[in-house]
Write a protein that binds this DNA or RNA. Structure first.
Lengths: 339, 339
DNA sequence: TCACTTACTGGGAACGCTTCCAACTACGTC
DNA sequence: GACGTAGTTGGAAGCGTTCCCAGTAAGTGA
């Protein structure tokens, strides 16, 4: 049914070997023969069979993108799309394809296809949630893996991350600099390292300024708008209420803003607000949100580079690559005390 | 290096054929033999080679998800994530894997891998933008395809879609019912069928109520927050200004809201606002947005079902499946005139 | 006891490609 | 004129599966 390399060889009057050599741009093929083969390829619109090729060369030119959480919880903000765009950028460049491996909320087959030998050359863990499935899989897997975000329990896995801790510290220092002292934080999930590190950056800034961290001003959220709303309502019950809030994600900052509005308070005059991520909405909201920008697409791009470099020429001696990308403070309107 | 079926067969003291039969749950295998083979599989942690299997059975159990536009423009709202989640749901259920085929903003190799024979069993077009690449690819491709959204120029392609036109009509009728008469619309891109159909629904509702469609009250956006903001500012320059606005996406409604706030106007008292999509933020914003809910995950799920059903047992006579899923009006606070 | 089924098993070709190896040319070179 | 040598080619053995086909052993009914 489909045209094979044999068919091409026959049409060009050469052997399969020669046709293969032409296809793969090997040297030492007579120019005239080479042209005859290309002609046959063009005439028949021949496309080589990728599966057969993979089997023969024992590589698939496919990497997996592992998304350990139900996707809709993560895609609620544009983090993952940008990450994937970054990965895709590198993959397209180097002729690799991407498989999506995700845990659905209902399905019970996470990482279904990863285990099958020969299917993937390597994998990128898109968001390092250290759940049991992921850890169990890492335990027994043999293909090279690069993680977005450090995996504490597996220090041998190369990773790329942004400097969450420093970013958080910068933005909280900015709040302090603006004159706020009773600064609360709505953290990310503490089982995610980004959640923990942003919290640590918050602590760093307070401690450095001689302000003690008050446990009641620390509320754990899950990065979603809703959780920011709930956390802010909790914070508003304290007396005196915080005069500034650092939300560990812009979506949570958005939720906090909604709670503040509902309580009749204005930002930044009654309460200052800062976020993390710099999603497009952050610049668009009123007041425009002061936040920390992270180079998300770059993150994905770098992770893919790390993985593909490794795959294309594996290093002689094993070295674990680690890359930390810088974050950037974006000052807007949500934490300036109006005179 | 990796364990093969031959190794398993040898360990269990049987032929490769028998080992294969055990692996694939064929009948007519002696129970004792069967158990010996399974034991060898467990002991060695054997995983069958997917590539070799694909080659032999001439199926890959992989479908492609084709995303014809730079992903970040589409992922700006949670549409695509939910769609993918729906597709993944069906795929996980039936042991299929998903390849992501996306056009990056910089890359010039869209649909890179689709052409390679044997790589994909079928494909889902995630968002029917009729650009040249897509049409060109459809022209020459041979694998089964299902589209999310109708592709006008290729009526032979099965598709799944939501009833955009009726949904838009419902929400505009609701505005009319609330007493608004000078109703503007911010449409989606007119080269996307969803954009056109929502606009037609808007026209339907007005016409049915005996209101004529005023060209100056129709502004084309691109579904993004920013485009909603810009369009609303344009609308505000007209005198008399519209008393209600139907934005063809919630993100654009959000942008419109920002423009209205900036102009010192309140929703719904000065201007009513309605959206389309029912993204999570729609319920969370102030005022909560009246909008049209579309079953996005269901859309993906259905598309995947259509495709996989077709792949698993191709129908004898060719029939083009078409499915239209209903939309639902969600009434909240943004279009009730306060007494 | 003899066909005749039925349950089970192994051999080997096939899937479509890559690549090693050997062989064959043509061209100088001593 | 024998002898490398480099360029060029085809044959054939893989890659790790599936599955058809033939064959054996055991069970069944006349």
């Amino acid at each position: 049914m489909n045209i094979t390399l044999d068919e091409i060889a026959h049409r060009a009057g050469v052997s399969r070997s020669t046709a293969s050599r032409v296809l793969n741009h090997h040297p030492h093929v007579n120019p005239a023969v080479r042209e005859r083969v290309w002609q046959a390829i063009r005439e028949t619109n021949y496309q080589p069979n990728h599966t057969a090729r993979s089997l023969a060369i024992r590589r698939s030119q496919v990497i997996g993108i592992i998304i350990p959480q139900p996707i809709h919880t993560l895609f609620a903000d544009p983090y993952l799309p940008l990450l994937i765009e970054g990965i895709a950028h590198t993959c397209n460049e180097r002729q690799f394809a991407m498989m999506l491996e995700l845990a659905t909320s209902t399905g019970n087959h996470p990482y279904l296809h990863i285990g099958r030998r020969g299917f993937l050359d390597g994998a990128i863990i898109a968001s390092a949630v250290e759940d049991q499935f992921l850890l169990q899989w890492l335990q027994q897997e043999t293909i090279p893996v690069v993680s977005i975000g450090r995996i504490i329990s597996h220090p041998g896995i190369p990773y790329v991350d942004v400097d969450n801790r420093h970013g958080a510290r910068m933005v909280v220092e900015h709040l302090i600099h603006c004159g706020y002292r009773r600064i609360a934080t709505i953290t990310g999930p503490m089982n995610i390292i980004a959640g923990r590190e942003r919290y640590m950056g918050y602590c760093d800034a307070l401690t450095a300024a001689g302000i003690s961290v008050q446990p009641e001003l620390v509320i754990e959220g899950n990065f979603s708008e809703e959780s920011g709303y709930i956390a802010m309502n909790t914070l508003l019950r304290f007396d005196p209420r915080p005069d500034a809030v650092f939300a560990a994600s812009d979506m949570m900052a958005l939720g906090a803003l909604r709670a503040l509005r509902a309580a009749g308070l204005t930002v930044p005059n009654d309460v200052a607000l800062a976020g993390f991520d710099d999603i497009p909405l952050a610049a668009a909201m009123t007041p425009a949100l002061t936040t920390v920008r992270q180079p998300i697409a770059k993150l994905g791009q770098t992770a893919a580079c790390l993985l593909l470099d490794y795959l294309l020429n594996p290093p002689a001696e094993p070295t674990v690559q680690r890359v930390i990308l810088p974050t950037e403070l974006v000052i807007r309107e949500s934490c300036h005390k109006q005179p």
